[in-house]
Design a protein around this nucleic acid. Structure first.
Length: 139
DNA sequence: GCCAACGTTGGC
DNA sequence: GCCAACGTTGGC
C-alpha cells in the first residue's frame, strides 16, 4: 500500500470541485511530466493520496482514493500520457500548510519540499501518518 | 511580478 | 550524446 500526493491549483480544479464529482470521481488529467506520469502509473486501485493546493493556499486539504488505475490521458495530443481516476475521501480537519511541513524536521525529506515542482509525488508511510496527525486526524 | 530550479528540446 | 537555450512551475 503506497501513498501519494497530487498537486492542483485551487482556482483551476480544487477540493470543492473534487467533492462535487461525488462517488464518480474525476480523471486526474493534464500531467505532462514523465516523472509525474510514472508515479501515476505506479498507483494501484484503492491507494490513497493527499490533495494539495498550490498557488495562494499551499496546503494539503484533503484525501482522495484511486478508483481507476492509469489509462491514456484523453486530453493529451500524444498517446504516451496517463491519468487515473480519484474520488474524494475526506477533508483535513485542519489543512497542513507548506510552511508547517517545512518547519517540521521529520518532513525535510518529503518530495513536497525537495522536488517542489513535481506534481505527482510518492509519500512515505511515516510522512503520511505525521501529516495526517498535523492535520488533526485522530489515529 | 520575479526568479530559482529543473525538465525538455534541438543544434552540433 | 553533450550541452546550451528555452519554457514552465511554483514559492516568495
Amino acid at each position: 500500500m503506497a501513498y501519494w500526493l497530487l498537486k492542483t491549483e485551487a482556482e483551476t480544479f480544487g477540493w470543492e470541485d473534487q467533492l462535487k464529482r461525488g462517488a464518480k470521481g474525476e480523471p486526474w488529467s493534464g500531467v505532462r511530466n514523465f516523472t509525474a506520469r510514472d508515479n501515476l502509473r505506479a498507483m494501484k486501485k484503492g491507494e490513497l493520496a493527499f490533495f494539495y493546493h498550490t498557488g495562494k493556499e499551499k496546503a494539503v486539504v484533503g484525501v482522495v482514493k484511486v478508483i481507476k488505475e492509469a489509462y491514456k490521458d484523453t486530453t493529451a495530443e500524444e498517446d504516451f500520457w496517463s491519468m487515473v481516476d480519484v474520488v474524494a475521501v475526506e477533508p483535513f480537519p485542519k489543512p497542513v500548510t507548506l510552511a508547517e511541513v517545512k518547519a517540521e524536521p521529520k518532513l525535510a525529506g518529503m518530495a513536497l519540499v525537495k522536488y517542489s515542482r513535481l506534481s505527482v509525488q510518492p509519500v512515505s508511510d511515516a510522512e503520511w501518518k505525521l501529516v495526517r496527525k498535523m492535520g488533526g486526524f485522530k489515529g
